[in-house]
Amino acid sequence: MKIYDYKGRKNICGDRVREARQKNRFTQEALAAKLQIEGVTMERDSLSRIEIGTRFVTDYELKVIAKVLGVSHLWLIDDENE
């Protein structure tokens, strides 16, 4: 299986996930718990890896992350550095 990177990262939403999480004053553990309540099994270390760009994010995870953080999924994937 080929592992794909984009500019050395496995996702483009990690920085925005961290930004929105911090604005909501959620710890990584708290966000992981809220995602689990919404049906997405995710541990704190998985969120850490998303935020630093070393873990892929599935479309359904992105949708639920956006919902829990109160942001648009499009905002999460907007790469303003382009």
Rank of each mutant, 00 (worst) to 15 (best):
R44N: 11
K34A: 04
A20L: 12
I37Y: 06
A32N: 03
L47Y: 10
G39I: 14
I12F: 13
A30Q: 08
G14Y: 04
T27M: 11
E29L: 07
N11S: 05
E19Q: 11
Q36F: 04
C13V: 09
R9Y: 12
N24I: 08
R44D: 06
M42S: 08
L47F: 06
R18L: 01
C13H: 01
E38N: 13
E19G: 05
E38C: 15
T41W: 10
I37R: 09
R44A: 11
S48Q: 10
L35Y: 05
R16C: 01
R44T: 15
R16M: 13
R16W: 06
V40I: 15
R21C: 01
E43C: 05
R18H: 09
R25A: 04
E51N: 15
S46D: 11
E38W: 12
I50K: 05
S46M: 11
R18W: 10
R25K: 14
G8D: 03
L31P: 03
A32L: 13
F26W: 12
R49S: 04
T41E: 14
A20G: 02
A33T: 10
D45S: 15
G39P: 09
R9D: 01
Q22C: 09
I12N: 00
T41G: 08
K23E: 10
E51K: 03
Q22T: 14
T41D: 13
G8A: 05
R25P: 00
T27A: 15
T27R: 10
L47S: 01
E38Q: 06
R44W: 14
K23H: 05
N24S: 09
G39H: 14
A33L: 07
E38P: 06
S48L: 14
S46H: 06
V40Q: 13
A20M: 12
G8C: 13
T27K: 08
C13R: 04
R18P: 02
R25F: 04
E38V: 07
D15N: 07
